[in-house]
Amino acid sequence: MREGLVSFKGINGGIYINIKDGEFNTILKELENKLEKSIDFFKDAKIIGIKGDSITKEEKNELLNVIKYKYELNITEDLESHFKEDIFEGIEEGMTRFINSTIRSGQVVEYEGNIVIIGDVNPGALIKARGNIVILGSLKGVAHAGVDGNTQAFIAAYDLRPTQLRIGSIISRKPDGNMDFIGIPEVARVYNKEIIIEPYLPRK
């Protein structure tokens, strides 16, 4: 049997249960095993919900019922609100990583805060930040700002011609065909669930 489908993770205010992709009965068995092993610990803990991209709503409810009624544990189910708090809050002022080089095809730059790149981001490169992304060169690869769902984050570049832009869970792609450098620095932000690009020095 494959182990490790079920894990318990702590975030501020409680514990949540993380479920990986797998067969439901295996997941259920593993969950029961783990709960039984340390039932005393879980009696005092605050379980705030179940997280898993691959399980269905019905499966989730079944697991919740097992936890609530078979093991008589408290479960508050306010996981959503906890995750909202978990979004990176430093897009006004916060952790930032500075990178002084060209990011080439196949390279990935990931950071828990904002990213500033003093150089170009070539096609095939990927930049992922929980906060904003600023590129003081040309952006031709893919940039993903606000990766944990923060649609307030922005992506700015001296030359903004990306293959794709992603902010939170919103994706927009470059039009087909070649684009020329328009000579104006631009910024991409989300308005009404759409990524809009505009110059940030409108008078130039």
Binding site: P123, T163, Q164, I171, R173, K174, P175, D176
Partner: peptide, 8 residues
């Protein structure tokens, strides 16, 4: 194929 911008 001209589909690079569609890859997720």
């Amino acid at each position: 194929m001209g589909l690079e911008n569609r890859i997720v």
